[in-house]
């Protein structure tokens, strides 16, 4: 393997790709068309905001917890059902009737009261933990519900930034790591990229064969392995650009 040869051929392949308008079109416009068609056919474009059903179990007898539940109900994003005990809420959650269950702890009102008394003195606060159970089957709910709750809570506390006496803790069994839009779309993009890669390599091959370049290259000391390496390298560099373009289109289209 001689890197100079591989490098030279890889560069040539990149230049070819980025200099030929037809290929550029394929790389950057095809993804756009692809995404728009995809988006339109799955109806994800321009849809209205969904409403999440959440269950609330109130262990606190204080008045502040009632006010908090009201604040949650006032959000257009949430449909709040109050449950008497944790068990029924859990049952409904596992049956998919609600997408999340919130457990308000007994010391919730007390905690808020301590905060209102001295908002700037965290050492005097009584800390409380709101438990949140999430439907592990719904990627959207796991992503959307916690920030909504956080926001309602922050608004309720009149608070602009942490720290807060009340923290929201996700108690469900699943490990919820943030699923980014990228991860959400990655499988599709990889499929797209690999199909694209095959197309491009085949196209580049036949083109060079037609104009006799491949034959000419074969009279130089480059080995088939070096030649293949250069092709693979070039398209490994090009494909992410294409799927990157695809991804940006997705974001742009709001998918």
């Amino acid at each position: 393997m001689n890197f100079q040869r591989i490098n030279a051929l890889t560069k040539k392949e990149l230049k070819k790709t980025f200099r030929e308008p037809a290929i550029l079109f394929v790389i950057f416009l095809f993804p756009l068309v692809f995404v728009l068609t995809f988006g339109a056919s799955f109806g994800g474009l321009g849809g209205s905001q969904p409403v999440y059903n959440i269950g609330v179990v109130n262990m606190d007898s204080g008045g502040l917890s009632q006010a908090f539940i009201e604040a949650l109900s006032n959000t257009t994003l949430l449909n709040v059902h109050v449950y008497a005990d944790n068990q029924t809420a859990q049952n409904d959650l596992s049956q998919g009737k609600i997408q999340a269950a919130i457990i308000i702890p007994a010391d919730f009102s007390q905690s808020l009261a301590s905060y209102y008394a001295a908002p700037n003195k965290p050492s005097s606060w009584v800390n409380a933990t709101v438990l949140l159970y999430l439907d592990k089957g719904s990627v959207v709910a796991t992503q959307a519900v916690p920030p909504i709750i956080q926001n309602v809570l922050a608004a309720f506390l009149n608070q602009k930034a942490p720290p807060s006496p009340v923290n929201v803790q996700i108690a469900s069994l699943i490990e919820t790591k943030p699923v980014s839009a990228f991860e959400f779309m990655a499988p599709g993009m990889f499929t797209f990229a690999s199909i694209f890669l095959i197309m491009m390599v085949a196209q580049s091959f036949t083109q060079d064969r037609e104009n006799g370049m491949l034959k000419r290259i074969r009279t130089t000391p480059i080995t088939p392995a070096e030649f293949m390496a250069s092709q693979v390298l070039a398209y490994m560099l090009i494909a992410p650009n294409s799927s990157g373009a695809c991804f940006r289109c997705c974001l742009f289209a709001g998918l």
Binding site: K16, E20, N211, G212, M213, K215, R216, T219
Partner: peptide, 13 residues
């Protein structure tokens, strides 16, 4: 060194 009959040069370079 080989100069083939058909003009083999890369047009986009």
């Amino acid at each position: 060194g080989v100069c083939p009959q058909e003009t083999a040069v890369y047009p986009y370079l």
